[in-house]
Amino acid sequence: MSTVEAATPAPEVPRPASSSSMSDRARKARKALSNPWASTLAVVIAILWTIPTVGLLVTSFRPELDVRRSGWWTVFGDALAGEGVFSLRNYETALFDGSTNLATYFVNSFVVTLPAVFIPITVALLAAYGFAWIDFKGRDFLFIAVFALQIVPIQITLVPLLTAYVDLGVNGTFWAIWLSHSAFALPLATFLLHNFMKDIPASLVEAARMDGAGHVQVFFRVVLPLLTPALAAFGIFQFLWVWNDLLVALIMGKPDTFPLTVRVAELAGSRGGDWHVLSAGAFISMIVPLIVFLSLQRYFVRGLLAGSVKG
């Protein structure tokens, strides 16, 4: 999150290799001159960057006793000697064992995340359209106010919000968590979607208005279809944010609604030495965001470049 996106030159997203424009050929020429040392170093660093994750991943498939007795790197030697033992036992324990029971929390993560992505996007879409294409009194002031709210750290809002939920009797329910995430996401969502909407040629919207279409028709028939990439970009953003969130889930939730992050963090505190369960648990909590991220990375990067990041 930042207040400066407006002034940031929107950098070009690297184009797919299939287009053969001038600059693309220049790029290929530069590639051909690529420095072999730079290539080697880049790959080595990328591998070093990944080693900690690999270590935990390997551990999650090792038997408990092995995990306690020897480092994960010894498996490569063992595997060559034909002694390596791997199993899904740790995952089974982490998911279904009474003391960890991550399967329940997996469900919670989904139930928390989907509405917390869907609701703010819907609300922000309408607001962004209003700010972009309806000329009403006070519009500019209100838009700047919404934009400025991006700088408010959510820590400052959490406790009074919780008190209000307690007074209303909805504390610890999914509703409280959905509403909190929705409110926190709105400034960035409205701002981002507004920027994307402003990119739609004004003539397109005006032509539709001339033809007698009301704002609601223009919204559904003209604007919404053109906005799919923007929605995907922000949707992934918000999905990763909510799925990976710990603070809001911890404060607003109860054991019935806790998502994976809260439970796994709890395990890290209470069973910090049980690396066989902890490693499997960590990967159970990471698998969904990794899949979403890897399959939709293109949109994620576009969203990042368009609006910087929320934090």
Binding site: V123, A124, L126, A127, Y129, G130, F131, I134, D135, F136, K137, R139, L142, V146, L149, V152, I156, T157, L158, V159, P160, L161, A164, L179, S180, S182, A183, F184, L186, P187, T190, H215, F219
Partner: peptide, 21 residues
Amino acid sequence: VGFGFTGAALLLLLLGLVYPA
């Protein structure tokens, strides 16, 4: 029309962000 489109967001921000802050 303007507040029809932006009202929900403004209300949510007022209650969920401004007031608690």
